[in-house]
Design a binder for these strands. Structure first.
Length: 142
DNA sequence: GCCAACGTTGGC
DNA sequence: GCCAACGTTGGC
């Protein structure tokens, strides 16, 4: 079981909308490193959902429902299969969102790729980091 | 709103 | 193949 973090600007695609839909195809990733992370995701992996820019906090937990498959090409220079996407299901909302501020203040959490490589939209995190975040959020793991 | 970090593009 | 210019992302 692996642990991941995906980011979204709330204005573009919010956790609220995700919850409403229950399931979403995580498409549109156009960065090789992020794509490789998508391809490494396994069904059942836990995924933290982070709101960037206007909120800068972790808001929910999702799960990998379907492992990577070709992201529909969006431009003339893209061939089908150049990029990948996965399907995610929304699992639970964090009782208390975990802010970037508190992440940076924490010795364990500030080692996350989210902090070090702020522009990367799909990043891995350790089990310890994941569980600690849930604890800070006042949310129980299954 | 600004700008640092980073990725991509295109001229040479 | 190098690198300057440019665009985008996201923190501040």
């Amino acid at each position: 079981m692996n642990y991941w973090l995906v980011k979204s600007e709330p204005d573009a695609y919010s956790w609220t909308q995700f919850l409403k839909e229950g399931k979403t195809a995580w498409t549109g990733v156009r960065n090789f490193q992020a794509r490789n992370h998508l391809r490494a995701m396994k069904r059942g992996d836990a995924v933290l959902f982070y709101h960037s820019v206007s909120e800068q906090q972790m808001v929910g937990v999702a799960r990998v429902e379907r492992e990577h498959y070709p992201d529909p090409a969006s431009g003339p220079s893209e061939r089908k299969g150049d990029w990948s996407c996965v399907d995610l299901t929304a699992e639970k909302t964090l009782a208390r969102p975990v802010t970037l501020e508190s992440i940076k203040a924490d010795p364990l959490l500030r080692q996350m790729a989210l902090v070090k490589q702020s522009r990367l939209s799909v990043t891995p995190l350790t089990k310890a980091q994941f569980q600690w975040i849930l604890q800070l959020a006042g949310t129980k793991t299954k």
